[in-house]
Structures are given as structure tokens and as C-alpha cells.
């Protein structure tokens, strides 16, 4: 029993520490990355994993030391897991739609081509109508 408690103690400490380090890396990424899209990479991935690890650590702590199974923490993990990729997607999409440029060292942009083609198609249709 004694050793089990020690193992769980270390697991909790490691989970929380890991989560905090990843949150820090996500924040660093926000500062260092050159454009919106790359920042959104850092914010969606590292920060999500960081928050999940901290929540999991808190859940383990309450489950084993206080004897309290917190379903709210589990639900929190689930919700963060589900919503953060969607938030990243919407941020990136809104930025692109409102004309935020990619980083100057970006190598290709297929979407721009597709949008131009679509516009061309729309304008040619207008001409036909007129």
C-alpha cells in the first residue's frame, strides 16, 4: 500500500509538471512563431495537451488522496479535447478569409489558387448573364 501511494504520488507530480511545461511551450510558441497560422499550431496542440495533463493530475490526486471521484474533471478533459481543434480551425479560417497573409517563407498555397479559380468562374457567369 505504501509503495502504491508513492507511485501514485509520482504519477500526479509528473502529470502536472508535464502539463505545465507544455503550457509554457505553447505560450513560448505564441511569442516566437511568425504568423497567425503557425501560432495557432502552437496554441491548439501544446496548450491542449498541457491543460489535459494538469486536469488528469488533479483527477488522480482527488481520486486517490481524498477518495473523491470528480466526474466534472473528466467532463472537462472531454470538452477541452473536443473543442480545442475546432477553435483552432475556426481561428485559422477566419484569419484567412479576412485576408491575413501567410509568412513570407511559406512555400505553397493551394487554397488561394482554388479561390481565384472560383472567382473567375463566378465573374464569367456574370458576363454570360449580362
Amino acid at each position: 500500500m505504501e509503495t502504491l501511494t508513492t507511485i501514485v504520488e509520482y504519477a500526479v507530480v509528473l502529470a502536472v509538471l508535464f502539463g505545465v511545461v507544455f503550457c509554457l511551450l505553447g505560450a513560448l510558441g505564441l511569442v516566437r512563431m511568425p504568423d497567425v497560422y503557425l501560432r495557432s499550431h502552437a496554441a491548439t496542440k501544446s496548450a491542449t495537451l498541457g491543460v489535459l495533463c494538469v486536469l488528469a493530475g488533479a483527477f488522480l490526486y482527488f481520486a486517490l488522496f481524498e477518495g473523491h471521484i470528480s466526474a466534472k474533471l473528466l467532463l472537462g478533459i472531454l470538452f477541452v479535447f473536443l473543442t480545442s481543434p475546432v477553435a483552432g480551425h475556426l481561428n485559422g479560417r477566419a484569419a484567412y478569409r479576412s485576408g491575413v497573409k501567410l509568412w513570407r517563407r511559406s512555400v505553397r498555397d493551394d487554397w488561394e489558387k482554388a479561390l481565384q479559380q472560383k472567382e473567375k468562374g463566378a465573374s464569367s457567369q456574370e458576363n454570360v448573364r449580362q
Binding site: 511551450l25 513560448l28 510558441g29 516566437r32 512563431m33 511568425p34 504568423d35 497560422y37 503557425l38 502552437a42 501544446s46 501567410l102 509568412w103 517563407r105 511559406s106 512555400v107 505553397r108 498555397d109 493551394d110 487554397w111 488561394e112
Partner: peptide
């Protein structure tokens, strides 16, 4: 993020 130089090549495919 932690690498000293930003040597990635982003793009949209």
C-alpha cells in the same frame, strides 16, 4: 518552438 532557428517551410495543400 524551442529550436534556435525557425527553419520550417509552412504551406497550404
Amino acid at each position: 518552438v524551442v529550436s534556435p532557428k525557425l527553419n520550417m517551410r509552412p504551406g497550404i495543400f
